[in-house]
């Protein structure tokens, strides 16, 4: 899990998203343990309160859960849940900005469609 903290969102959001990415990629499989708050804090050099806030987002969304005295684990079914969430966000996060940039560059819908075809062929 590599985080750069160079984008505009708060760090705790980026921590939560970084863990989500790692779950989606299979780096943290379902029912496996994720790093502790201390480990996140020390390796990313962030205040433990910030790391905790990030992980708590995932706990609230039932992506990870706490096992008392053991640590935090990825919930069964988390991958499918995250995939569904990301699919719903896809339009807002990618399509809207893609269309906006395309308009700035005076690219037509057809131009974009051709590029998408090309992207899938790779």
């Amino acid at each position: 899990m590599l985080l750069e903290f160079n984008d505009d969102r708060p760090i705790f959001v980026q921590i939560a998203e970084g863990v989500e990415d790692a779950i989606l990629s299979g780096a943290f499989p379902e029912e496996s343990q994720i790093p502790s708050i201390t480990e996140f804090s020390v390796s990313y050099k962030i205040n433990p309160a910030t790391a905790l806030k990030g992980i708590n987002i995932l706990v609230d969304n039932n992506i990870v859960y706490k096992k008392r005295g053991l640590g935090m684990f990825v919930m069964e079914g988390a991958v499918e849940k995250l995939r569904e969430k990301r699919r719903q966000e896809f339009y807002n996060n990618y399509i809207c900005s893609l269309v906006a940039e395309a308009k700035r560059l005076q690219l037509t819908k057809e131009d974009i469609n051709i590029m998408i075809e090309r992207g899938f062929e790779k």
Partner: peptide
């Protein structure tokens, strides 16, 4: 910074860091 956060996580205390290297310490402080 790593050692400081390890120490703080294992046995919390009040820590005041006076520094000019603001960027580096920015994420460490609350």
């Amino acid at each position: 910074y790593q050692v400081l956060l390890e120490k703080y996580s294992n046995s919390p205390s009040a820590i005041v860091i006076s520094t000019h290297l603001i960027e580096e310490v920015s994420n460490v402080i609350e």
